[in-house]
Amino acid sequence: MSRRGAIARAAAGVVATLAAAVALTASDGGPSVEPGALVTMVGVEFQPDSVVIHAGETLEWRNDSKLTHTVTADPEKAAVSEHVRLPEGAETFDSGNLAPDESYRREFAVPGVYEYFCIPHEAAGMVGKIVVKPAK
């Protein structure tokens, strides 16, 4: 193994580690990666209310309203269980309260159809859908 090759592999490892860290940060709401799509929260609506992304991409929600919202896909937190849908193997998620101008990002690794809602405004019809296609 040449020294240059070892350095290159080491650098690649660092990059991969950083990428993993970035992905983790992104799924926790950090600002580190470019989102695959943007959903805005306006009034009591997710706009658009349905988006299509590919596995491994990150989706961003931005609260452009004056209200506090959440992005939640957890059947235990739903007023109506039909408002939540998760592909097999996918984990539940909940952004927690998002004040006006705050954002939330999440990476989607498992392909399938996700349906989610806003906790305070679920009954007012604030629900959304994500279709995650297999990775490109």
Binding site: G43, A123, A124
Partner: peptide
């Protein structure tokens, strides 16, 4: 209890 429906 919540008394608003679709579209508030």
């Amino acid at each position: 209890e919540y008394v608003r429906a679709e579209g508030y």
